[in-house]
Every structure is written in C-alpha cells, then in structure tokens.
Design a protein around this nucleic acid. Sequence first.
DNA 1: GTTGGCACTCTCGGCCATAGAGTGCTAACA
DNA 2: TGTTAGCACTCTATGGCCGAGAGTGCCAAC
Lengths: 368, 368
Amino acid sequence: MAEDHSTTTEPRSSRRIDLTERQRSVLRAVVEDYVLTAVPVGSKALVERYALQVSPATVRSAMAELESLGLLSHPHTSAGRVPSDLGYRLYVESLMRETALDRTDELMIRHQFSQVQLTSDEVMRLAASILATSTRSAAVVTPARARRARYGHIQLVELADQARLCVLVLADGKVVQRRLDRGLLEKLAEAAPIGQADLDQVAATLNVELPSLSAPQVRRKIARLSPLAGHVAEVVSQMLEESDGVSIEEVFTDGITNVLEQPEFAQGAKLRGVLEVLRRSDFLEQLVPVLTRGEGVHVIIGHENQIETMHEVSLIFAPYGAADRALGLLGVLGPTRMPYPRAIPTVRYLATLMNELTTTEHYSESHD
Amino acid sequence: MAEDHSTTTEPRSSRRIDLTERQRSVLRAVVEDYVLTAVPVGSKALVERYALQVSPATVRSAMAELESLGLLSHPHTSAGRVPSDLGYRLYVESLMRETALDRTDELMIRHQFSQVQLTSDEVMRLAASILATSTRSAAVVTPARARRARYGHIQLVELADQARLCVLVLADGKVVQRRLDRGLLEKLAEAAPIGQADLDQVAATLNVELPSLSAPQVRRKIARLSPLAGHVAEVVSQMLEESDGVSIEEVFTDGITNVLEQPEFAQGAKLRGVLEVLRRSDFLEQLVPVLTRGEGVHVIIGHENQIETMHEVSLIFAPYGAADRALGLLGVLGPTRMPYPRAIPTVRYLATLMNELTTTEHYSESHD
DNA sequence: GTTGGCACTCTCGGCCATAGAGTGCTAACA
DNA sequence: TGTTAGCACTCTATGGCCGAGAGTGCCAAC
C-alpha cells in the first residue's frame, strides 16, 4: 500500500541499474539487517535470518556482483558487507516496502496536536519531539513563514530609557522587534518630545494603511505619509524585507542524543561535525531550493549531500505549508544506516499534519 | 587585584581547612597543572614545571597529606594526583589568583555589543557566544525578565480561520501569544459576529486600563469591564501569571562542542548526560534560588550539584538584571577541570555588562 | 623537617598466538 | 548453466604476557 507516494528523491540514480530478483532480495536483506544490527552482514547470517531459499555460497556470489555494481562495500576481506550510499539509494527507491503509519499511530499523533491552545512555538516543539521519538533520529522543524513577509500589525512602545521599540506582527503571526533610533525620531519631530500618544497615533495610521502589504508595497506608501510615520514605515519595510524568504533562524530541534547513541558516532570526531551542523542551521539553507522543487518527501543519503560534514548522515525532509505562500521545513537527520521504511512515512505524515495546522492560521492574503 | 569581588561560592566549605604554605602551593600547582594537561600529575613533574624549591619526595609527602584531607585523589597507586571537588573548591576560594580581564578584552567585548540595533535575542546570542569562546566551555544565557510580569500592550488579531490571536507584549518587551477560544468569544458577544473593529475596541480599552499592572491587579479590574473585554483580561492575567518568575523557557546556549572536545567526555555515556541536561533547561530551575540569594558569581563544582548527571561538571553562573525587578541568568558549564581563574572574571564581566544593557530597557515600574 | 634511595605497584604499549567469521575459488552436481 | 559444498586463505578481535615507565610510600640519613 501507499506505493507511489511521491517520495521524491534527490540525485536520482542516474543510470538505471537492473538487478536480478535474487540480487534485489539479497540487497534488501543486507540493508535491513545492517540497519538493524549495525554489524557488517555475512552470507551465512543472511540466509539464516532471512528466509532466502539458497545456500550461503549463492548469496556470496550475489553479494560479489552487488559489490562490483557499487551497491555494497567491504570494510576489509573477511568482514561482512555494508550497503554503500548508492545501495541505500536503490533500496529507498525500489526495494523498500514502505510501512505505512498505523492508523492508531496517526490518531495518537493527531491527538497530541489537538491539545488546547498550542501556541505556534509549542506546535513546532511538539512536532520535533514526535518526529524525534518516533524515528529515533534527530528532528528539525522550522516554522512556516510567508515567503513574502506581509504587514500585520504594528505597535510602538516607549521604553524607560526613551528608546522606542517597534513591535511588528507579521501577517503570519511572527513577531519582529526593532529599536528605533532616538536621535532620528526627534529630528523628525523637530525636537518636540514624542510621547506615547504620538507613537500611538503613528501606529494607528500605519495599521490602517499597511495591513497585508509586502516590503516594496510599503515602500511605495512612504511618500504619502507624515515624516514621522514615513520613517517608521521605512523601518517597517526593512523589517519585512529581512523576514522575506524561508525562515531558518528559528529552528526547533529534538532528539540529538538519539543520533549520538548510534554506534557510528561513538567517538568524538564525527559526532562533533554533526552537532555543529545541527546547531548552526546553515545546512537548511542548502536544503531549501531542493525541497521546494517537489512536493513530497526528499531523501538525501550520505555523500549525496553537498556538505562535507554530512557525508555520514542521511536527511529525510519535507516542505509543508500553503504552497507558494508559506513554507516551512521539517524532517529528520540520522546515520545513513537509518530505518527509512519507518522514517519516510512519519515525515510525510507530519508534513501533511503541519500543513493542516498552519494553513488555517494565516491571514487571507487576497490582494497582491 | 580584584581580590574580594564577592565570588559567592555555593556550599561554602563547611569546616575551615588550615593548610601550611607548602600544602597550599602544592595544591595550587596540582590544580593548575591538571587543568592544563588533563593528566594526573606526579611529584617529579610538579617540581620540574613549577619552581617549587623542594625535592619530589617532599612534594610527595605534601600530596599524601592533601589526599588524607580529601583535597586530592588517586586514580590508582602509581598514578599521579587529581584534584577532588573539594580541592577545586579550596582552590577557587583561596588559592586561585584571579586574572582580571584585560582592559583590551573588556573593550573588545563591549565593542561587539555596541553594534547597531541589536534586538534582545541577538544580545542573548552574542553574550552566549562570547562566553563560550572566551572560556572554551558551554555557555548558557537566559533573558532578563521581570520577576513579576507586567502588562505592556495588547493586540488582538483576527486570523483567516476566524480564530483570534492575542498578542501580549509584556512591560519588559517579552511577547506572548495565545489563541482565544472562538466559541466563547461568540457567546460573550451574544452571537453577534465579532470583527476586527470590535477587537480593536477591546484592545484600546485594555491598553488604557491595564498598562504596568501585574496579574492579580489585572484580575481585580475584570469586574469593571465589559463581558468581552473582561474575558480577554482574564486570559491576559493568565498569561501574565505564566510569565511570572524567572524565565527558563528561552535559553540561549553556545559552545556545547567545547565541552565535548574535553578528554573527560570522550566517550558517549557521560557526554549524553551533559547534553541532555543542556537541552532541557530544567537544571536552571534549581539554580534560580541559589543564584538569587547573593549578588556575585556562583561556582558549583561537581558533586556540589544536586543533579546526578552534573556530578562531572562545574557551573559558573551569575544573575544579572535590575535587582528584584528583572532577573536573568548567565554562565558557563564545563568539566570540573575548568580554568576557573579565567572563567570567573569573564562571567562576572559579562553579567555586569548585561546589567547595563538590560536595566535601561524596561518600563519604569513606578507603582505596584 | 628535608632529602635520596629503593622496593613496590600499576598502567600502557607491543607482541604473539588463537579463535572465529567471512570470503573467493574451484570442482562437482542437477 | 546455475547452484552448491568444500577448502584454503585473510583479516579481526581477544587474551595473555612481558617490559618499560611513571609514580608512590617508606625508611634511613642528613
């Protein structure tokens, strides 16, 4: 079931590799055993554990063939076989039997989200937590933000030290703050002291003129405003500009320790790279163009990743949000030796769920 | 210089331990050598590296005395000595020559903060980053929040799905959001549809009535408001209540990898505990009562910590913010083998700096 | 009180031998 | 022609052993 679910996979295995049925089942068995045990798997163990109806010798020759095709590799003579990145790729694309999420699992997850009054941050956190625990990998979730930031509401606050704080709520609920340059404000007001009343006045004006406008649209309005309001609008348009595009500033992660537990990250060196990558969320930036290309779940395995430090890990990510309008990313990061048949549907399900949860939550953006 | 800088240290070494001058200098040398090398230090190496004017044999006997006092310990016969937690404690309290921060260092740090228009989040991030790099430990910074949350401004936003979003800006600039129960709103409005205009009306009223009030004060006002405004005020008071106390929800960390690089965390097990502790910020909760007791920098070494998983690490933390009004925490976490003479002044300096930066940023809170 | 000397202890690295797992090849078989 | 059993070979992992080195504790002498 759920066979052609648009699991768009990144660097599509260029040349088609044709395998015999035997090779296919041996590769599948190797991948699944290795994913389970993390131990290079030998021919004998394979026929024992998987009901292959042939002798170890036959399996050995099949393995040798798979190795010459670059699908398996050999830590050294007389060790078992380990899937290569390409082997995983083939497995994911055509060997894997994707286990759809249990109906009960789905309901359980859904139930957690239906708890009363989750703020948007809490939703993100919950999504990351669910992803992490149910895939036993590290989860990453970014909030869905409008690709084009739009004005929602503004509020100007006078602080104790006479500084002015500009609180801008975007149309999609994100809040951005900026302090206003005091000297400049006073110059604009021609040295007359500016009180909270004046600020309220400006805010009221802008809250009538600007709602649902994007940065350039706000800019076009500036000329028609008073100097003071115009200056604030200028600042607002800057803030909108900076919020344009997919937000990778706010990233919610969970389950990092799940990854560190894996034997392949037992010693420090490799581990550090992964951690560093997770903390600084730059890597998401590289993901954005890839993920926005297609709709479904994207799988990036080991060396398929551009980033050097991520050659030992796989990513399973999906975009979510109202297509073209708001976009968030969500997914998991784990060793290439990852339980793909479970992780992929989980990511997919959570993406659809987050879709539902967020698309209802934005201003209707009628005009452009 | 800078000798009695109120380095308040946690579980004050109960009974006073009197040491001879020789014992003191041996203990100091052992701590400093071990902090540097992470290798148990022997008598011979000690007289070589530190200009102790005595023979190794003499040092040995001094070490034996220190060991019987519980200040040093022995991994096994024929290994060098390692400071115990108590040894570090004594070192921190009376042996350490605290190296004050270079004037140039101070200026450099200060300069980074003076960059234009840092939002409060950026300030936190910067503080964490500076702490982490200059102490080579993991840094933790929490924003300074009013101990008693006070109303600043409210804004009610209508979302696309008819839900209402209540955006509350606290007096100290923190923003809290909550969705309002739609059914309830409509009941209060006697089934008349509520538009943005109505919401603005309510917000305007509350923004006149409530500024700078705390949760109980808001609650007392409810009776005098319209049903709709009253309901919102009720929600607001809940939000205020939940924001009371030191905020440990938003925690900025940096430099975790610094800790993981340390040899004592080379293998996975210990490391995991530390990571887990840093991610979930519960441990800060335990710190709050301790840190708010005194003013200065607090040092918690290894087993002095209540929390089991933190028996291998030391904390150097300080509160900052307007005393009694707003409070944030900041500090570093590293192995007990930590360069205290450098870390302590750094934490202290950053606390004073954050003090300056934040106290100017709050509403004047005249009335109570 | 300090020191040099000395026997003792413990770790660490290298070395070797062995056991075990797994392969690749070949020859026999269906 | 594809499959299988057998077998020699390779490589790792494990454990024991040994010697070097570092460090201690103690004692007797200064």
